[in-house]
Structures are given as C-alpha cells and as structure tokens.
Amino acid sequence: MISVNNLTKMFGDFKAVDGISFDVAKGEIFGFLGANGAGKTTAIRILCGLSKATSGSGHVAGCDIITQSEDIKRNIGYMCQKFSLYEDLTVWENMELYGGIYGMKTKDVHLRAEQLLKEVDFYEHRNDLVKSIPTGWRQKLAFTVANIHSPKVIFLDEPTGGVDPLTRRQFWSMIRKTAAEGTTVFVTTHYMDEAEYCDRVSIMVDGKIMALDTPAALIEKFGVSSMDEVFRNLARNAVRNE
C-alpha cells in the first residue's frame, strides 16, 4: 500500500530525510517513530503529497509520490497533531464539509457519517458544536472525520497528544478496528506503549531509519524488556537535538 525506496529530502545542505526505504502492507498499522527533528514530519509531508522529495521514489495507494501527488490526496485521510475540526461548526457539519471536500455525494456522506458516529456512540450528539465537546472526544471525532471518505491509507501525525490514558486506549481500539477493515494506518507517536500496539514500527534517527520490525522482534533483538528501552538505545546516538 505504501512503498518507499531511498527517499531523500534536502533543505539546502541539510538532509532532513536521508535515503529511507520501507513497505507497508494493506491493513497494516505501521508505527513511524523518531525523536523531534528526526525527519518524521518531513517524510509524512512527502508521502501525503504536500512536499516533493529531492530524490528517491515511492508509491502511496498505488500512486507515484513524484508525479501523482494530486491522486494520492484523493486516496488518503490525514489527521495532524493539532486539532483539526472547526470548533464553531457542529460535528455533523464538519463531517458534511470533509465528505464534500473529497467529492462524496451528500447522501453518501450522511450514510457514512451515521454509521461511523453510531459505532462510537456519538450519533445523538451530532448537532453539538465541536467547541462544547471534551478534548478526548474531539480527538476520536477527528479520526472519524479523517476516515469519512473511506481512504485506503490514513496518516495520523501524533494523534493522541494531550489525551488521557483511557481515551488513548479507546482511540487505539478504533485504529485497530479500522485496520481490520482493510485500511492501512500510518501513525507517528511519542508514546512507546502505543508503539507496541503497532504491527510493525520503524525508528528514525537523524533522517535515517535505524530499525524496522515488529515490536516483539525489536525488543528481542536489542535484548531489552520494552519498546521504550529500544527507542532510548537508538536515540542516544543521535547527533541532532531538537
């Protein structure tokens, strides 16, 4: 579903992303880890078609990231670390808007929105203004909205920042359910316990991918007891700070 080969992004002399390669299968939850400044955000921007790679090649949802970035946009969902729903619109209006942006028919948007909201038990509150909804819920709704047009791949850029542990758990069960339905989930996170929910994780240090495997295999390979220690082992050698 995602396939990247030797992807590099230069900003002047600075190699933000330094020849990364990986493949992500359909329905997989792929954890994309790295310290701040490791090049995660730059890589995601390239994959989403927001930015052009300096060299290397890749495909997302069957579209070339260099030449077909507009086609990529139609097939992916995106949720960023900042909260991304409009606070002065209702949940329903937000869903109508985002469905409409992706060219869905109004009738289809309503059907899909009803189904998704019922799954998370929020259908009765669909006409509430977003600003009156608690943060944890908003984050779950933002995910629902990113999923409204049934994208092939969903990119989540630190989706659980500032959310309490219980909501994070619920959030991840939503992610797993979505992946089980065949949607590929590409997620970045700072929480190493979340990394263990992923099918596979990659860890980026200084623009390069230093490790890529299932969480269990990585823990075994580094001879430690948790992903947290794996991450600290690798990030310790980083040259760039922040």
Binding site: C48, G49, L50, E70, K73, R74, I76, Y78, M79, C80, Q81, K82, F83, S84, L85, Y86, E87, Y98, I101, Y102, G103, A146, F155
Partner: peptide
Amino acid sequence: LGTMEVLLVSPV
C-alpha cells in the same frame, strides 16, 4: 488552528 494543513492534504 491547524485546519489549513488538513485542507491542503485534501484534493481541494
């Protein structure tokens, strides 16, 4: 707000 980024990732 960060909504601009989401709009830019969309096909609009």
